[in-house]
Nucleic acid binder design. Structure first.
Lengths: 133, 133
DNA sequence: ATTTTAAATGCAACCAGGTTGCATTTACAT
DNA sequence: ATGTAAATGCAACCTGGTTGCATTTAAAAT
């Protein structure tokens, strides 16, 4: 049961187990890809409070339960730590349905930066066509 | 003289040579890195009209004079075509001063995508420390 | 040099994502 | 059962960005 996992997650990070948080985590946990504010609001019901939603998204992000992705100027939120596999992180954006998926780490990357610049990590957006399209 | 280059650029794309556009292009051309709406507005003077600014940024982007970059949820605008070197494009974000620079193409990238996914191009954000910091 | 006209500007109104302050409510430790 | 710190709900606000419309202007036609 997902419920158990959510309870553990909240307790683990000393976040109170409220209806709001359980509903939000349930949604993000079941989503197979990153979701925007408006998608979350649509899913949880139009009566959900904007500030509570944002405050919880921030709270979850701070403790690493979710991470944010910015895509064409607006933000999407997805379950999981941003950099669970190291410093590099990649997302896949479907050119047809605009869905944003979180990918495993890039296997190997070479890139050149100008003299005087020091590269520490890379975040990549791969564009293409997803399995559903 | 930059003035000459700007005149050519505008004529080349059949855009009227207005004071507004010349000032905007002058600023973006002299900027060594990507600029946000608020930075542009600050540079051109607080009296510049918001819609004229956005309409011109869009117009310039459409013809390929500038390109946009989104960084932490807000957009920056930079001189030059987005994909002048092919399908892949990279930006460098300084972790200290937050400045966004446009980079040359990545030399070579390997990445794995799940079965059923088809990768067409990659856009990378390299994080590190810039030459100025 | 003057007229014409399509395009560009300036203005106001609007929308969405996101933040903040504050009073009320609620989870949970005692 | 009670106290308290934390979470919620609400309103007000901010910024980036868009749209419709009346006015102005660059530049082509005369």
């Amino acid at each position: 049961m997902e419920q158990i996992r959510i309870n553990d997650l909240l307790q683990e990070h000393r976040l109170k187990r409220t209806k709001f948080r359980i509903a939000l985590l349930n949604f993000l946990l079941s989503a197979r890809h990153a979701r925007s504010y408006s998608e979350i609001k649509l899913a949880l019901g139009q009566n959900v409070d904007k500030s509570s939603l944002y405050r919880n998204l921030s709270a979850f992000e701070e403790v690493g339960i979710i991470h944010r992705i910015d895509h064409n100027g607006f933000t999407k939120y997805a379950f999981g730590k941003a950099q669970k596999h190291g410093l590099n992180h990649a997302h896949f954006v479907c050119e047809q349905c605009e869905t944003v998926y979180c990918m495993e780490e890039l296997s190997s990357i070479q890139f050149k930066v100008p003299k005087g610049f020091k590269a520490n990590r890379i975040q990549a957006v791969i564009k293409g066509v997803c399995a559903a399209c």
